[in-house]
Simulated scan of single mutants.
Amino acid sequence: MDAVEISAEAKCECLLFDMDDTLYPMSTGLNVECRRNIEEYMVERLHMEEKEVPRMCVELYEEYGTTMAGLKALGFEFDNDDFHQYVHGRLPYENLKPDPVLKTLLLSMPQRKMIFTNADKAHAARVLRRLGLEGCFDRIICFETLNPSEIQAASDSSFLLENEKNCAHSDDSSASESIESTKRRCPRILCKPSIEAFQATINIAAINPERTIFFDDSARNVASAKKIGFTTAIVGKEMLVPGADFAVNSIHNIREALTMLREHGKEEQIEQVLPPRGVETAVLA
């Protein structure tokens, strides 16, 4: 390993990725179909007024992070698994195609690689399988990770306590608060872009945000990640957004982002827009 590679690894130990519309382009149409399924669920299963649903769906998403989190906060009672099956189970996964370029790139990089998604584990598994990216990530932080059932929470408590001592980058009080909140099963759903969701992910996965690059297509998620100390990259954009260190037209620009970090470091204002490489298809936003 040469001096350049050592320098890059010293500044970045982990790559943390959003999944939907980040690992694949928005042009696949899954986002639109997901939104349609959520609205149908609100009408068919929760018996909400159809004409009010589109507006309410957006408002809840904006205020609570996800429409599902907003519905729970308003007191609607429904089974989490049923919601996810209805919303994700009918998506056109056939629109997702294997991405051997991304797979080769991910497997060639020595950093830990993880996914942080608000979606459920079944959806994450389907997406990674269709993209041909199974085995490329060390861990997946998903809905069930941050919002375990009471049975799962009990079995996971020892794991969380064990990881508390590994979080040297986080003070003891914040680590304890995150773990206790998970065990208490707070009725509020934990999800991006809340700072609490990022802190819980840091503690559970034992990652140091100061040595991690976070990739996401959502400007508000990027802003939250920046507040807690991550180096950040907005994906699928041609312009920087507040809190973003990089604007990455294509997820295939991971290596270029690492190069910029190596050359400038976090002590400088990086703010680089990385165009798609010639062999890539730009992510549409």
Rank of each mutant, 00 (worst) to 15 (best):
E5H: 05
A8V: 13
A10Q: 14
K11I: 07
K11D: 06
C12T: 11
C14A: 01
D20K: 01
D20G: 03
L23S: 04
Y24S: 00
S27V: 02
G29V: 00
L30Y: 01
E33H: 09
R35P: 00
I38S: 03
E39G: 11
V43G: 00
E44V: 11
L46I: 04
M48A: 04
K51R: 15
P54V: 06
P54S: 06
C57S: 13
E63M: 09
G75P: 08
D81W: 06
V87R: 00
H88A: 07
H88M: 08
G89F: 03
P92S: 02
L96F: 08
P98Q: 10
D99I: 03
V101Y: 08
K103Y: 06
T104Q: 15
T104Y: 09
M109T: 09
R112H: 06
F116H: 08
T117V: 06
A119L: 09
A124M: 08
A124F: 06
A124E: 04
R126T: 14
V127W: 03
L131K: 07
G132P: 14
G132Y: 10
E134F: 04
R139Q: 15
F143T: 01
T145H: 01
N147Y: 00
Q152P: 01
A153I: 01
S155Q: 12
D156Q: 11
F159E: 08
N163A: 09
S170C: 13
D172L: 12
S173H: 11
R185M: 05
C186S: 14
P187G: 04
I189K: 05
L190G: 02
K192E: 10
K192N: 11
E196G: 03
F198P: 00
A200T: 13
A206H: 03
P209C: 07
F214A: 03
D216P: 02
S218L: 05
A219D: 13
V222L: 03
A223P: 02
S224Q: 07
K226E: 15
G229S: 10
T232H: 09
A233C: 10
K237V: 04
K237N: 12
M239H: 10
L240E: 02
L240V: 03
P242F: 01
A244V: 07
D245P: 03
D245L: 04
E256K: 10
M260Y: 13
L261R: 06
E263F: 04
H264P: 01
E267K: 10
E268Y: 07
E268A: 12
E268N: 12
V273L: 07
L274W: 12
P275H: 04
P276A: 12
T281I: 12
A282P: 11
V283S: 14
L284S: 15
